[in-house]
Structures are given as structure tokens and as C-alpha cells.
Amino acid sequence: MNAFRLLADLTHLLSIIILLVKIRTTKSCAGISLKTQDLYVLVFISRYLDLFTRPLSLYNTPFKLVFLATSITIVYYMRYHKVVKQTYNKDSDTFKHYFLILPCAVLAFFINPKFTFIEVLWSFSIYLEAVAILPQLVLLQSSSNIDNLTGNYVFMLGAYRALYLLNWIYRFFAEDVVRWIPWIAGLVQTALYADFFYYYIKSWRNNERLKLP
């Protein structure tokens, strides 16, 4: 465990808390892509199947359970909550997210640490997580104004993987750990946020409302 890793996981957790606070206090999921949230449920279920096969960890296990529970809760709110579901921008959430799943599955089938059920699903979840933000970014681009909580949510969600990159660099030098699959996927994942980061920081410095061109 190093500071980058701890900070990364806390940032990830904070992003989810921000989203839940937004949904619960404003009773609105405006600006949030249900397709991205669906993909996260799939990501966590396929990655954390090892909850059943690996020994419990005082650090990892609670995080895994929280990520699973919160992602399912968010999707539940967006689909079924009487008030919240009416605020969902269905017509702007146009990204064909199913088209992300098949290429990730094919990639995981061929590129994995070990050709076993758990390892292929793990690889699938790493690839799918890298691109899961795309529907959300497309939705934000079509929004004329992005509320603070939504902007902060997406920022924290992107910052988390960027902090993992620092953690991986640290571990490479300090612990000799080499893991190509999450490294390359994490790099792609962070790169997809580049544009968003740019406009987020710009609007923050100019004290303006966030808007993507």
C-alpha cells in the first residue's frame, strides 16, 4: 500500500458518494448516463467474482462490496425510483453501449493473464472499465449546463485512475511489479478524460459554470 493507491481508492469512493448525494438530495439524476452506470455494474460484477475464490482482505473486501452495492443502488434509483427516473435524460443518452461489450469480451478472451473463467472475466472488466465513461462524456457534451455535483463526480472518477497510474509507477520502482493489462487499460481510461479535465480545470480557474464544447 502506498499513498497514491490509498488516495486513488478514496477518490473513487468519493466520486460515488458525490453521485449518491446528488441523487438523494436533489432527487435527480439529470446529466448522468444510465448506460455508463449499467457498464459499471457489469465491470464490478465481473471483476469481483473473486470475492468467492480469494481470501478476504481487510482493505480490499469492504471496497469491493461497497462498489458492488453502490453501483447497483445507483442503477436501481435511475431505473425504478418514482421521482429520480423521471429526471433521466433518456433522449440524450444515445451512446450504443452494447457495442463496447463485445470488443472488450473478445479482447479479454485473447489477452488475459491466464485462460481461466475468473481471469478472462477480470480482463474483460479492466477493458470495459477503460471505456465505460464514453456514454457519460457523450451525454455531458450534449448538456447545455452541467451541475457542480455531476462535474465533480466525473472529475473524481477520472482522477482515480490517474492516481492509479502514479501508484503503478511507484510500485514498478519500489516493488518491481509489472502488469501490462491494467497499465495500458488505465492509460487509455485516463486519456479519455483528457478533454474533460481540460475544460473542468479551465471553468474552475475562471470561476465559470462547466460546459463542454
Binding site: D9, H12, S57, N60, F67, K114, V178, P182
Partner: peptide, 10 residues
């Protein structure tokens, strides 16, 4: 560099 596979991350 051979890939060491340790799944101790989230």
C-alpha cells in the same frame, strides 16, 4: 519484462 500477476488492487 515478464508480467508478474498479483491481483491485490481494486
Amino acid at each position: 519484462v515478464p508480467s508478474k500477476h498479483v491481483k491485490d488492487e481494486l
